[in-house]
Structure formats: structure tokens, C-alpha cells
Computed example of a mutant assay.
Amino acid sequence: MIKSIKKIAVMTSGGDAPGMNAAIRSVVRTCAYYQIECIGIYRGYQGMIEADFVTMTARSVNNIIHKGGTILKSARSKEFRTAEGRKKAHANLIKHNIDALVVIGGDGSFTGSVVFNNEYGFPAVGIPGTIDNDIYGTSHTLGYDTALNTAMDAIDKIRDTASSHNRLFFVEVMGRDAGFIALNVGVGAGAEEILIPEEDLGLERMLESLKKSKSSGKSSSIVVVAEGDKSGKNVYQLANYVEENMDEYEVRVSVLGHMQRGGSPSCFDRVLASRLGVKAVELLLEGKTNLMVGLQNNEVIATDLEKAIKGNNDIDMELLRVSDIMTT
């Protein structure tokens, strides 16, 4: 291990995701294991600028592995996007003798880390925390598995009322730029249609598919829509279009929204957070930086942080094929 690293800071940034607390816990306890001091930074980069720091010990993270959100809070910092803001942040890290940084967040948080590293050469490792699962270099981001189960549970409940009233429900899930949640939840919940940004179904094709489902004897339907889907301007326009063209259905819309980002993390996310936290600290102690830890084929790996930001996670074409078959 590199002895020059004596104090590591950990922070959460951007949108919160279930499993972030488990990752904080893992970083803090790994530092304790290697007898490295750990500092928590409140409110991400903004807290770094304001020196909102707290010393964390193994006991500081008792009873947080099961909690959603983040005990270190999160915020988006406009000031950190400026050279002056980053200069303040660096000065605070140096003043408090912090040698390295673990950043838990998504691509925006990682972009800030890369810029900071390029300017000051400050060692940093990223842990991917976002329910969208849209970070290159890992099959799963923290919070993704929990969000899937939260959304699927909600859709199961919606289906009960849909079948009771012969209704068609459009259920919008998160995914502004990626359809990973919608596709997996749609297949898992048995949706009749799945609309995602990567595949533009189109209004006419969607309507034709719903009519086919109706004629086959289905008395109710669930359409799962990623918020970034391009079939219409928004989910309400989709609902209005179907209502105008299919009198036989009562159409309803349910937007799951931020409930997908909350709640107790799944076992998978807790274990993943624990594994990634250990690896992040160990990479820093080995003198490595500007990397993101992730999961591939159930192995914890490291990916260049810039590559993680610029790379794209492709939608699973095999799962799309399965979806088409299942909606027959």
C-alpha cells in the first residue's frame, strides 16, 4: 500500500440513489480497516467549497446500510463549475490534509471529478450511484436494482385496479435518456407495451399494437413509458391519443416519479455498495486515480473515469426481443 495516503474524503453528489449510504459505510469502514482517517463531505462539491467536513469513524456509520437517500446529503453546485469555485474546494482539501477523494454519483459528478483532477492532480475514484444505470463500465449502478423492484411493485398494484375496471394505464418510470428501467420493469411486470428513448415505437404503431392486444381478448393493459420516450410530447399526450382512438378503454396515467429513488436498498444494492466501496479505497491506497469502480460479470473492475463518462451503455437487444415475444 502507498503510505502517502493518510486521509480520504467521501462525498455523494447529484441525484440520490438507494445504496449510497451502504457505499459511504463501506468507504468509512475500509479506511478504518487500513487505519486511514476518513472525512465525510456534506452536500457534495458545494460542501467541498464551503469546507462542510466531518470526521467519520467505523461507529459513525452504524445502522445506515438499510437506509435510502444519503446521510451526507447531496446538492448540485454551480459554483464548482467555475475555476474560482474549484480553487476554493482544492484549498479546503489541502487545509484539512485530505489526500484523496471518493465520489459517489453519476456522470455529472464524475465530470466534475475529472476536471478537478486535470487542474490539480487530486487523486479520486468514483462509485457509480444512479438509478438510471446509464454509466459505462458497470453492469449495475447503485440504486438500479432497488428502483426496478420499487417500480415493479407499484405496477403490480396498478394492474389490480386496471383489470378490475377494464382500464389502460400508462405508467411513466424514470429514464430521461435511457430506457433500462422501463425495459426491465416492463418485462418483469408483464406490460403490454414498453416505450423507451432507444426505440421510437411511434403513435400509430403503438395504437395498432394495443388494438391487437384488445382483439386477442385482453380486457386491460399496462404500457410502461420511460420519461424520455419520444413517441409523444409526454405521457399525457400518449394517453389522450389512445383515448381518442380507442373508445373501449378507460385510459389513466400514473407517474411514479421520485418514489423510485427512495426506499430501503435491495440486498443486491447493499452488497454491490460494500464491494465497490472497498475497491475504491484500495485503488487509492495503491496510488491509482481517475478511475471508476464497477461490476462486470460479477467481478469488481476499474474503468477510466473519462471513458465511463463518454462511453454508452447499449440497451439489451435480446431483452427487447423477449419483450416483443411476451407482448404477443
Rank of each mutant, 00 (worst) to 15 (best):
K7M: 10
A124W: 04
V173S: 01
R275P: 02
A308F: 09
L183F: 04
E299Q: 10
I222P: 09
M174P: 06
A83D: 09
D314I: 09
T30F: 00
K157E: 04
R167H: 07
A273S: 07
R261K: 10
M1E: 11
G105C: 04
L272M: 08
V54D: 09
A226P: 05
R159A: 07
I39R: 01
N234W: 08
V171I: 10
N149A: 15
I71H: 12
R261W: 05
L210K: 08
I222F: 06
P265M: 11
E193P: 05
G129T: 02
S216I: 05
Y120R: 09
R59I: 09
D304Y: 06
M11Y: 00
L72Y: 05
S215K: 06
V187G: 03
D52H: 09
L101S: 02
T146V: 03
G262K: 12
E172Q: 10
V114M: 10
T70H: 10
G137F: 00
V251C: 15
F170S: 01
G106E: 10
A17Q: 10
Y33L: 04
G257M: 13
R86K: 13
V187Q: 03
M292I: 13
T289G: 09
E243I: 02
P123K: 01
D324R: 11
H258D: 05
M246A: 12
D153Q: 11
E208V: 04
S77E: 14
D247M: 04
Y120A: 12
G190L: 12
E208Q: 11
I5G: 03
H66N: 10
G190A: 15
G137C: 01
L101R: 00
A58F: 12
K87P: 03
H96K: 14
D99M: 14
R275T: 06
R167P: 04
H90L: 10
G263M: 12
E286D: 01
H66A: 11
I127R: 00
V281P: 12
G188W: 13
G263D: 07
K6D: 06
K78D: 12
M1Y: 11
K307Y: 10
N298R: 07
E50H: 06
I2E: 11
L320N: 07
E192T: 06
